[in-house]
Design a protein around this nucleic acid. Structure first.
Lengths: 250, 250
DNA sequence: ACCTAATTATTTTCATGAGAATATTCCTGC
DNA sequence: GCAGGAATATTCTCATGAAAATAATTAGGT
């Protein structure tokens, strides 16, 4: 039915946010572009857990062959953002209860560590810039952009981690945050309307005051708030299942 | 010259541990086998930084096509164990100074966290088993097995992490340890002959005594010892370069 | 009508070949 | 003997086709 020619065929390259693309990336590497695209799509909740990924569709969307798409899917799988079932296809991952708990715990511990590092390394200017970022995000949030607050919050935490000056830990945290967005998508039940901006602001001001313990305590509180939106019990997380959706109409 | 038939050609399949294979793994996945093989080879120092990886060689060693090898190399690259230079090939990664420092720091922080978790979760039996592992490793070490003590030490730390009961953190730590083996291989200058067994034993006994602070302090000491074997200055790490090797004979 | 079997259609999976880029060798001229 | 360059050989990179597996659809029988 659809026989798209590859090499010169596609054009629909998602030019999305034109700004960061050239500067941050510098990747002509299509594989990496695909990887990042899918990762952010998952992180933003545009791709929900369990959704099937058609490699053919991605292939001719980016104008490349399935081979290179496959490469991207492979690393996404190793990052636990996708699951590949043999001969059945690849799906957006559906982290289980155990995994979710481990992710929350790992994040808690990591954020503590990161706060230590930020306090050691970050300059006042950087903290100011971080506060500005919070303003922007709050602004976006209040204007009802579709991005969930989970996403916004995630962005803050990753930028904070960058201020810690440790690229390894930053990468680790950002991967964990991405996986947690899947957890939230699966298990979140109450969706409060405040975004985390207040918490974030408090944390930054504690950092400005060089009060590590306070910052950590605030962070704990903030994370507990996030975890509180979730009920990690078996049989949860099927809410988005076809059958479960039906029950809402019975 | 060498025209090996693919599909039925190879045989050298490392059938390793037949027991866990079906239960835990269920991987007939050759890609994963290749990935693990290369990862452990790198972790054990059998593949030194900078060494070129011939995908063709791997391909017909495992009796598969380059395509699947390529998949494995892709995820190894995303784990920072390999580097792929465009159109030039893939090489064992050579972490720079900054990366090395970040890795050491990340590891220090992580091990602290892990000790907390171990103290919370590990049973006495598990700690006993861990001690037995130390005995074995010391035995291996004294019998002059070629595996460097860095490797042995790494094994201990990963198993310790497992006792923490958090799969996410365990995975993170084990990846960092793997990358650090590259760092050691590049920058280690003095090679003391003691293996870390004593340190390890002390740590475990502190854990048995439920003395977290002591365990952490011992861990710090142990890690400082490891980091002490390394000189992270620019221009180091070329020791294994061809030219640098020549200088030893001038 | 409904359940089961068989056929068709999609989709994944992988090997392979062709083209491009780089390394290596060989040759020529100085 | 050596530098420079053409020619050859490797090796990566990727698109594509063929085979295998699963999903969807139709047919057939009770």
């Amino acid at each position: 039915m659809k026989k798209t020619t590859r090499r010169q065929g596609a054009k629909t390259a998602p030019k999305a946010n034109g700004s960061v693309d050239a500067a941050e990336n510098a990747h002509d590497d299509v594989t990496e572009r695909i990887r990042i695209t899918l990762a952010t799509a998952i992180g933003e909740g545009a791709l929900k857990p369990g959704v099937k990924i058609l490699e053919d569709a991605i292939a001719d969307h980016f104008g490349v062959s399935r081979t290179v798409v496959r490469g991207a899917l492979g690393v996404l799988e190793s990052d636990h953002l996708l699951e590949r079932k043999k001969n059945r296809g690849t799906f957006v991952a559906e982290p289980g209860i155990e995994e979710a708990k481990a992710l929350f715990e790992a994040r808690r511990k990591l954020e503590h560590v990161i706060l230590e590092l930020v306090l050691e390394h970050a300059t006042a200017d950087q903290l100011d810039a971080l506060e500005k970022l919070i303003d922007e995000e709050e602004h976006i949030h209040h204007h009802g952009d579709e991005k969930s607050k989970t996403v916004l919050s995630g962005k803050f935490h990753v930028v904070l981690a960058e201020l810690g000056g440790n690229a390894v830990l930053t990468e680790v945290l950002s991967k964990i945050v991405a996986r947690l967005s899947l957890v939230m998508s699966l298990y979140e039940e109450e969706r409060k309307d405040d975004c985390g901006a207040d918490h974030h602001r408090q944390i930054v001001s504690a950092l400005k005051a060089k009060d590590l313990a306070k910052a950590q305590q605030l962070m704990d509180h903030h994370l507990a708030d996030i975890e509180g939106r979730v009920r990690l019990t078996e049989g949860q997380g099927d809410r988005h299942t076809f059958l479960a959706v039906l029950e809402n109409f019975s």
